[in-house]
Structure formats: C-alpha cells, structure tokens
Design a binder for these strands. Structure first.
Length: 482
RNA sequence: GGUGGAGUGGCCGAGAGGCGAGGCAGCGGCCUGCAAAGCCGUAUACGCGGGUUCGAAUCCCGUCUCCACCUCCA
C-alpha cells in the first residue's frame, strides 16, 4: 500500500516517494516564541507528530526538524528596549530571556499533549552563518540586492524570480501590497527582507556582523537555512500552518530555489483552529491558550479532540467539544479495562503484540485520514465488547490487541504511563480496602434481597466519587474521571 | 480585485456516482433486583435552482452564504 499525501504545491493527492528509500526528512515551521502557545500551536505540533508516528509505523526512519524562531520583530517589540545611551538599563525583560521563557512554555505544552520531541529543534539564532551564506549566494546570482538607502537591509528581488507566486498560485501582478508596508529601500513592494540592518533602538545583543553591515536575519530566510542545514538542500516534506503559506512559505520556496537548492518535495499544511466560528485573535479576545485548554480536560482527551478531525480541515472549537471527546475516549478506555479484567487469569491474559486492522492502516495511508481511523477504532471497540458479551475470549483478546495498537499509534493509549497521574500507592491500597468492604456489605444485602440497603451503599460511594458496576464476575469499582 | 477552501441528520464530523463512516445526544429492545457498562435496533442528512445519468451528497451549469490568505499569525 502506498502512502498518499496532499501536496499544497501540486494541489492534489500524491503518492509519497522518499528521496532516500526508507527515510523521511521533514521540516516543520515551529513557533515564533513571542507569546504563550495557544490551541492552534498545539494542533499544528500534533499533526506532524501523527505524521511522524505513521511514517514510523510504515517502516520509515523519520528525521523531524521543527525550528524555534527566537529572533524576530515581535520578540524585540515585546521585550524591553535597548539600554539608553548613558548605559542605564530600562525596565522589562531582555529579548532573549523572553524568547526562552516562551520556548519553555511551548515545550511544556507539547510534552503535556504527548507530542514526541522532534529529532532536532534548532533555534534560528544558531544558524545565522548559514542564513548569510544563502543571502550571499542570492546576491551573487542576481536574486537579491542590498538596499541602496544605507539601511543595511538586503531584499529578495521578486521580479527576478519567475517562479514567485507558484506555491499559492498567485500572479505577482495580482498581489496587493499591504497598506502599512514600509517601502524602505525596496525596488518593489513585493520584495521581502533577507537581512535587516540594525536600527539604533535595537539592542546590540540582537545584532550579528555581516558583509552588509550589522543586523539580523529576516524571518523567511531562517527556515531556508535551517532546513538545508539539517535535512539537506533537498528534502522530503515541508510542513506548517495554512496561514504560513503566504508569504512565509512562498518566500522560503523562492529564496531557496533561487539560491540553487532543490528544497522540499512535498508541502503539507495543517488547517487552523477557530474558536466559536471565528479566527482567534487578540482583538476579539477569543484566544484559547494551551495552558488553559489543557486544564479543561485530561491531556489525553485534548489530544483525542485535536486528532479526531482531519488535519487539513478547519477545526472549530465550541463549548462541549471536550465533553464529547471525553465520552468517546471513555468507550475505548472502558473496553480496554473490561477486557483486561475479563481476560486476567485466562490464557489470553498476556497482551498480544497488536496489528492494526487493514482499514485503519488504509485510512492513515490516505493523507492521514484520522477521522476514518477513529471510526475503525470504534468499530473494533464495539466488536471487542460484543466478543466479551459472547464470552469469545480469543476474539476479545484479538480486538484488545488491535485497539492497543491503534491507540498507541494515535498517541491516545489510555493505559500508557504518560497519561497516568502518579498514583499514591499507599492511599490507593487503603481506599481499596475500604471500598471493597462496602462492596462486600452491599453484596450480602443483595443476597438477602435488601435492595434498599444495597442501593444506599451504592449511592454513598457515588457521593464519594466512586462508581460501581455489577457484572456476572463480580462488582467493579472505579474512581470517577478527575 | 486575486488565490484557496467550506456549506452533510438535534450537535460534532467523514465520505465523494449505486451498500446511510464514526462519535455525542435521543428513542425502542436485550441484559440487570434496579442501575451502570455493554450489545441489538432506530434517521426519508447532504445550502438553493436547474441539468447529465438507469442511478447524484458525489459530475456539469447557475446561484446564495461563510471562512482563510494576499509581507512578517501554527
């Protein structure tokens, strides 16, 4: 079976053929660490985590590079201004401290969501030499020019590159220049900065020496440099949020190819997250930050929610969505739990190494169709429950193995230690002793047909947050999901 | 103005010419002392108007509405 993915450059589904057999090189635009991560950042990271896991399951060795943009106008803008001429320090946080603080927030959010660390996570500030090398090549080839205004800026000459606009299928003539664009030394308003000469109010620490004067890199060149540095001049997949298609990815593509690099062979873009039908924005005040979102439900539920929609669709968050995800995931958990209890002590007790059902694999092979994959997961859960009802233990064990395999790939295996809040063993043991005693009391009440007492005990435990379930093999108790 | 995308049952959300994905909620049933969990059943769904076809949510034409991007937002 061939893996297919939707290539934004091509505008259609394409069979994936790796550059090097058995390997996948994937570059994903990470965040600019200028403010706290929001739900959209979570989704983006999760999407590429899922791609990576699936490629891995399909036998590829995946090199995933996700950068951190740690130097940028907004970072400088959000940090304190440069020291005054007399050397007096101004109040506030220095830009690199601010960038690092937010980087740590991103890392914490990704970890909480079960996003595996990429193979490497380069910071833009560590590849300035590589950026300058590309800029020099562009100037040499006649596709970039230092601004004649003495600003120290270097611009990409869009008019010199016929392929400009290819990724977003736009004709240069149709592009509308932003009203607030600062023309500075540009030949054409569409030209974009490769290098930004240092301005007087910018801190010395945010400036690097260059052949064009001290300054710092433009945003787009960062990704061109880092992808080539870690994955090579040509690599398999370039990913990022749909909002980055233009100008960021268009510019990356133009500058890398104009510099002579073959660049990405496939472009993958994830859909954005809206809140209440609208794009998140600071002015609307509807931004949903990662930390808040992750506290609204168990992280594995958040992951389920974000992974259940197709990665290219717009995901519109609305109230109640996490409750639905919770209910859906509970079905899976309940089955695994139920199967484990029923199979314990039988010859099917040991977990078998699971194979995912063919339909599940086919779904993910088809442009990572997680919605269909989740449908297969639920079908399998139902079949497993039915097997348990029929006392078909072999079938139940088989379904359990499949469910485990699927949830592991999706990163939502409820039994995985990463989702377990550390149980306080002594407390658990003590609680178990007390609860089981009440259950025994209830059993004798039931045996004596004193259902009023039995129900009272059940209600008493429910009050304490403990749910009882009777089954032919005994009464099972569980603590309600926290 | 340009480019790309979307409108599916009470809700979420797939699919893309012919068997009504899946989840949540609802209803009926089985099971249960009663529950819970589970299982089985249950929907005249595809923005609107035409057309092509034996057959259209899926193709074509028209039309309405919404969203994203168009120089630095994942």
């Amino acid at each position: 079976m061939v893996l297919r993915l939707y290539d934004s450059l091509d505008g259609g589904l394409r069979d994936f053929e790796p550059l090097v057999p058995g390997e996948v090189g994937m570059y994903v635009c990470g965040p600019t660490v200028q403010s706290s991560p929001h739900i959209g950042h979570l989704r983006s990271a999760l999407v590429y985590d899922l791609w990576r896991r699936w490629f891995g399951y399909r036998g590829y060795r995946v090199t995933l590079v996700r950068n951190v943009t740690d130097i940028d106008d907004k970072i400088l803008g959000n940090a304190r201004p440069a020291p005054a001429a007399d050397g007096a320090q101004t109040a506030g946080e220095v830009w690199w401290a601010l960038a690092y603080r937010y980087e740590l927030e991103f890392t914490a959010a990704y970890t909480a969501l079960g996003v595996q660390a990429p193979t490497y996570e380069p910071r833009a500030t560590a590849s300035v030499t590589q950026m300058q090398e590309i800029i020099a090549r562009l100037i040499e080839r006649g596709h970039a020019y230092p601004a004649p205004d003495g600003s120290g800026d270097v611009y990409f000459d869009t008019a010199s590159w016929p392929g400009y606009g290819r990724l977003t299928r736009q004709a240069a003539a149709d592009m509308v220049a932003a009203e607030d664009a600062d023309p500075r030394g540009k030949r054409d308003p569409r030209d974009f900065a490769l290098w930004k000469g240092r301005k007087d109010d910018e801190p010395e620490s945010a400036s690097w020496p260059s052949p064009w004067g001290p300054g710092r890199p433009g945003w787009h060149i960062e990704c061109s440099a880092m992808s080539a540095r870690y994955l090579g001049a040509q690599f398999d997949i370039h990913g990022g949020g749909l909002d980055l298609r233009f100008p960021h990815h268009e510019n990356e593509l133009a500058q890398s190819t104009a510099a002579g690099d073959a660049f990405a062979r496939y472009w993958v873009h994830n859909g954005l997250v809206n809140v209440g039908g609208q794009k998140m924005s600071k002015s609307l005040g509807n931004s949903l930050y990662a930390a808040d979102f992750l506290s609204m439900a168990r992280p594995v539920v958040v992951r389920y929610y974000l992974a259940a929609a197709h990665y290219r669709s717009v995901l519109d968050y609305h109230d109640g969505a996490l409750e639905e995800a919770e209910a859906a995931l509970d079905r899976v958990e309940t089955f695994l739990d139920r199967a484990a209890r029923r199979l314990a002590g039988t010859r099917f007790a040991a977990e078998r190494p699971g194979q995912v059902p063919d339909a599940f694999a086919a779904a993910l092979d088809d442009d990572l169709s997680t919605p269909e994959a989740f449908a297969v997961l639920h079908d399998t859960v139902r079949a497993g429950n039915a097997a348990l009802d029929d006392e078909d233990l072999d079938g139940a064990a088989e379904r359990r193995a499949e469910v485990s395999a699927m949830t592991q790939i999706l990163g939502i295996d409820p039994t995985s230690p990463e989702w377990r809040s550390r149980p306080d063993e002594p407390v658990r043991i003590a609680l178990a002793a007390l609860v089981e005693r009440r259950i025994a009391d209830r059993q004798s009440a039931r045996a004596g047909r004193d259902f009023a007492l039995a129900d009272a005990i059940r209600a008493e435990l429910a009050e304490a947050g403990i749910t009882l379930e009777d089954s032919p093999t005994g009464t099972h108790w569980s603590i309600d999901a926290e």
